[in-house]
């Protein structure tokens, strides 16, 4: 089956309500990013619903060669979003899993197959949703100027085709300079279970990524994917601790960055 990812998606009008599928990483390790995403959406007048039974998109098993296990977990998520609202996912990787792989996983199932397709159609990556559905246009006039680097996850870039949306959101902030980094489009070396199965290759890749982010002159790195962030920031922090120095490459999820820059922090 041809796998064309460059066909443009159709976006709905800005809705009154949306679901948040937070992803297991945000839920457990980076809840602030999820909360900031909720705050951003609510400030734009969208009521955010968080189905409490959600767990994980199933990607760890899917990409490791365990489709049945992935299916069992994905199966749970299929029923969690009964209203026809968009499902916003603060991760390009998990969004891509739901958009592209759910329909494939359930393709042979006459009941769940159509369900997976219907869900996939209203799954949106967070920055994609802000740009194409919300029409986010807030500025950061009150904030201090800063220079940051943007890391776009490979799945956001290539499977979701939304590499432009994070950049567009940052470009909308007048006092943010986005530093140019070498090989911005190259993977950070995370790759989910790849980082555990091939730790040395993963290390070689993330070492280069951290180096080029630092060489860009950025004060911090932002990304719309927590997996990449944990990998990049975790390695940068590891190097700093080894060297006994202060953190040289902090970073955060783009939701938190946007929320703070556009005055969200003051209202909280």
């Amino acid at each position: 089956m041809p796998n064309h990812t460059d066909a443009p998606r159709r976006y709905p009008a800005k809705p009154a309500a949306a679901y948040l599928f937070s992803t297991c990483l945000v839920d457990q390790f980076s809840p602030e990013a999820g909360l900031d995403a909720v705050r951003l959406l609510e400030r734009e007048g969208i009521a955010v619903h968080f189905p409490p039974d959600q767990t994980c998109c199933g990607q760890p098993a899917y990409s490791s060669g365990y489709p049945e296990e992935a299916k069992a977990v994905a199966r749970l998520q299929l029923d969690l979003f009964p209203e026809p609202w968009p499902v916003v996912v603060p991760s390009g990787s998990c969004a891509a899993m739901m958009l592209h792989n759910y329909p494939k996983l359930f393709a042979d199932d006459p009941v769940l197959g159509p369900k997976a397709v219907a869900l996939a159609e209203r799954v949106f990556e967070f920055t994609e949703f802000l740009v194409h559905v919300v029409g986010f246009s807030r500025h950061d006039e009150a904030a201090e100027p800063c220079t940051i680097a943007l890391h776009t996850s490979c799945h956001a870039r290539r499977e979701m085709g939304v590499h432009a949306t994070s950049a567009a959101l940052l470009a909308g902030l007048h006092k943010v300079t986005v530093a140019q980094q070498a090989r911005a489009e190259e993977c950070c070396g995370f790759g989910g279970t790849f980082s555990l199965r091939h730790p040395e290759i993963s290390e070689a890749i993330v070492t280069d990524k951290v180096a080029s982010l630092k060489e860009s002159g950025a004060e911090a790195v932002v990304s719309a994917d927590c997996g990449c962030l944990f990998n990049i920031l975790g390695h940068a922090e590891f190097l700093d601790k080894e060297a006994g120095r202060k953190p040289t490459l902090p970073g955060e999820h783009i939701a938190s960055f946007l929320w703070r820059r556009t005055g969200g922090g003051d209202q909280a």
Binding site: F29, L35, V38, F50, S202, V206, T207, F238
Partner: peptide
Amino acid sequence: GAWTGIRTPLIPAKKRLRDLMAER
């Protein structure tokens, strides 16, 4: 395991997003 060979460990947050959402 292999994760911390070159990275700082992943530590779960004090409160999960679901806890924060419930509080809100």
